[in-house]
Design a protein around this nucleic acid. Structure first.
Lengths: 153, 153
DNA sequence: TCATTTTATGTGTATATGCTCCTATTATTA
DNA sequence: TAATAATAGGAGCATATACACATAAAATGA
């Protein structure tokens, strides 16, 4: 046994068994598929998510939206920038509380979202078919528990 | 039913059922836990991963390492920069093939890795305990299948 | 051998991520 | 009510991510 492999055993577990690494790797992998599918719209995976979330939540503040996305508040602010620049969302000062900033989907935002929806549906169905509905359902549940772990902090 | 919610139904599935969104959200959440744990070492989650991978693979080229990590080659090149700057890895031109660049762990890299290992172990065990070993095992398997989906491209 | 192709890598650009420190506004309390 | 605390948000900084394009070197083929 040479010097290189003498203590390798120690590092096989953090290499292969690390929950963080595996989830991050999977995030990179799955993002490839969705971004490939959304490319005709010019939307990134995150951007599609933000538009959908804004659509579902209606007019919403930065912090509330960030909580729902388990995303840092400052990250969300910056992620909104490209969408605002393209005119898909509008950010206005809160009327009741002037500290707040209210995010709203514009008409252009609704249009791009409508265009993106069938593309999302296609790749989503493709992924569900490849993985199998049972595995997807199970995976989503298990990931939800993982997410709650961080939310509990 | 007002105008706002009239077609909301369409967007509940992409909001709650999107595999990409859920995995990415989970990646953000779990990364918080591991980076919090690794903070005393000054290593980010990705950096710890890169050091471990380099340790396990021994001297390795950028492209081969990128394949193993399911990470874009150019992403890996840039991710290596902070580690190189801190002296944890060394990148040298390939001796046989001068196009290649060989990544090696330095002594300082081995030291920081040794220091980080128990911190990783603690947070990993904590996560496994919180999620339950069964769920973790299942989750890792399901995520592996997801990763293979992108590798098949 | 020399032209062509393939391979390994880097750069420019844009977005994604979150921590620390800062300001403005609202809420609380002495 | 005035001082203080709490809250919402932004800016600076560093890292993470990957596509398009460019370069250098090795492999291939006529």
């Amino acid at each position: 046994m040479n010097n290189k492999s003498s203590h390798l055993r120690k590092y096989l577990e953090p290499a292969q068994g690390c929950v963080c690494f595996t989830i991050r790797k999977s995030a990179r992998a799955i993002t490839q598929l969705y971004e490939e599918a959304l490319r005709p719209t010019g939307l990134r995976a995150t951007q599609f998510t933000l538009l959908v979330a804004t659509r579902v939540m209606g007019t919403v503040t930065i912090s509330n939206l960030a909580k729902g996305l388990v995303m840092d508040r400052t990250t969300l602010t910056r992620n909104m920038k490209p969408l605002e620049k393209k005119g898909f969302i509008r950010i206005l000062p809160g009327r009741e509380d002037r500290r707040e900033r209210e995010v709203t989907l514009t008409l252009a935002g609704q249009k791009i979202l409508s265009a993106a929806l069938p593309l999302w549906k296609t790749v989503q169905q493709s992924v569900v078919e490849s993985l199998g509905q049972n595995r997807v359902t199970r995976l989503m549940k298990d990931l939800s528990v993982t997410i709650q772990l961080a939310e509990a902090e």
